[in-house]
Design a protein around this nucleic acid. Structure first.
Lengths: 302, 302
DNA sequence: TACAGCTATCGGAATTTTCGATACCGTCCG
DNA sequence: CGGACGGTATCGAAAATTCCGATAGCTGTA
């Protein structure tokens, strides 16, 4: 057998439901069909995609990696059919994008490369800045759309937004960390640990705010603006980190493994989304961008 | 029904064989299976992908558009499985690429965006220059790989190359051009027409050389370095062009239609490929790049 | 220990895909 | 003109796949 889109769809559904049964239910299909599709996918790839346990399944690091590709492929498929099915007049003009440093690498790059292929005649420019300043630029009409963290929009009066991705905070640990042996991890377990904080997009404030609830202020071991650096530091045991799942990758640059664990008791989520000026007639090029980005989100949320 | 990879595979095969029967043969499958798959694809998209005639089928403009997406999706699929199936250690380091102005937009951009997603830790730099100068840089060790026209490599002693795409010269005409009413077009028909030439990557020399065989030198109406400009000029009737199929798109920027026709009597082809230094141990990052690029080529040549 | 919740497996049913034969259409050539 | 040829479309039957429902097996939990 060879790869099938159906397999990818079922795999993605199972991955973000964390369970075959839930995925089957969401797809209105029988559980065994999903199980078999995933089994075939694993056999074809020669890689184990899930760890099965009694409460459901979690994605393995290799699965995480493949998951991103699967999502990307499915998004590309829906975009491809959308473009030809529609009237298919070509969109031209300019598109002025804004990103924050977090979304630039982890959200925009995917969407943008797809957008470029679909709309080769649109001249795209992008600026990277803080969320606050991006809002300013949008209101001033200097940007068409921004990809940014929308959890705490400042000027929600003048702005309209659309969520692309909600990403829960999780705990990053080196693979041999003692907390990894615990069945479940509480926030109070983390309070004493040295913390690596990411100094972009208010991630630091969020992490510190979370931990400050437990009396003394958290011990910050490192502060950096680079997600790669956070990974390396966590992998080598310099500390733990609290970051949205969005930027999690199972390996550090040096190839060391990192675990990402749920913390019991609901942690807050980060919303990443598109922001544009409310009420304004949105240009074609920008509308297309929103559509392309949403295709990606729709696939994930399946 | 919904889209299937199988449909895409059959569609791509049929498109570049120009015939369902040939495609079926190449796929070692029955002709009717291919016919039905394509029929379903067309029904699903709500678009006619082929024009059927008694000698086979040709791709419609909408089909051309969808074809590029289909190829891209299939390439992404093979890359996705390749990456996870293999040992999947992450590649890091640097990759120094060279491109010519022609390959930059029409070959590199696709491959590069895929490569970036697959190897996020490789720092990529790219320089754009003439083929001659790129060869120089490769021999000097300043570039790892170049994407360029390889039909007339100068220093083939020191260089090694791999063909990515062979693209035949074809004739571009405005949709209402008188030659479009002819069943077949000979090179001598073209000799009298005003010619739009593209002044990059020796495309001009090729086109002129072709036509010079017919006595007087061709009448060059415009000379430009922009493919978009060539399209606009052809679409508005300023002249015709002889260019490799590689850069053909059915629409100009303004939305006018352009036809691309075969010229009877085999026209030469342009080979686009990867070039690197012979014998040298090729770095991992570069080897990966070659693999990613070849996946795209393999899909097309299916 | 019984139960709840989950995944894996299996045989049979349902659906899809494929095949082979044939119809049909346009072109070439005698 | 007529027939052979090379191509696509269509159709019914066969083959293959996918899906379902039931069931077994596992693991925590009350």
């Amino acid at each position: 057998m060879s790869l099938t889109l159906k397999q990818l769809r079922y795999f993605v559904a199972a991955a973000n439901q964390g369970s075959v049964s839930k995925a089957a239910h969401a797809l209105s299909i029988s559980q065994s069909a999903v199980t078999e599709a995933i089994k075939e996918l694993e056999a074809f790839l020669g890689v184990q995609l899930f760890l099965r346990h009694s409460r459901g399944m979690t994605v393995t690091p290799e699965g995480q990696q493949f998951l991103r590709h699967a999502i990307s492929i499915l998004a590309e498929v829906t975009n491809a059919s959308r473009v030809v099915s529609a009237g298919s007049r070509r969109v031209t003009g300019r598109l002025n994008l804004g990103v924050t440093s977090l979304t630039a690498g982890y959200v925009l790059s995917d969407v943008l490369s797809r957008y470029r292929r679909l709309n080769p005649d649109v001249e795209v420019t992008a600026v990277e800045d803080t969320g606050e300043y991006l809002e300013h630029l949008i209101v001033g009409g200097e940007l068409d759309v921004a990809v940014m963290v929308t959890t705490h929009l400042r000027d929600s009066q003048a702005l309209q937004s659309e969520i692309l991705e909600v990403s829960p905070f999780r705990l990053w640990l080196p693979i041999d960390h003692r907390l990894n042996r615990q069945q479940s991890i509480a926030l109070s377990d983390v309070a004493g640990e040295p913390l690596i904080v990411l100094d972009v997009d208010e991630m630091e404030q969020e992490a510190v705010k979370l931990l400050s609830a437990f009396g003394e202020r958290p011990r910050i071991a490192f502060r950096t603006r680079s997600v790669e650096a956070v990974r390396s530091l966590v992998a080598t045991g310099a500390g733990v980190a609290l970051l949205p799942d969005l930027v999690y990758r199972p390996w550090s640059l040096e190839g060391d493994r990192i675990h990402s664990r749920d913390v019991s008791g609901a942690l807050p989520v980060v919303q990443v989304g598109l922001v544009w000026r409310r009420g304004l007639a949105i240009p074609d090029a920008a509308r297309e961008f929103v559509a392309v980005a949403q295709a990606q989100h729709d696939v994930k949320a399946r």
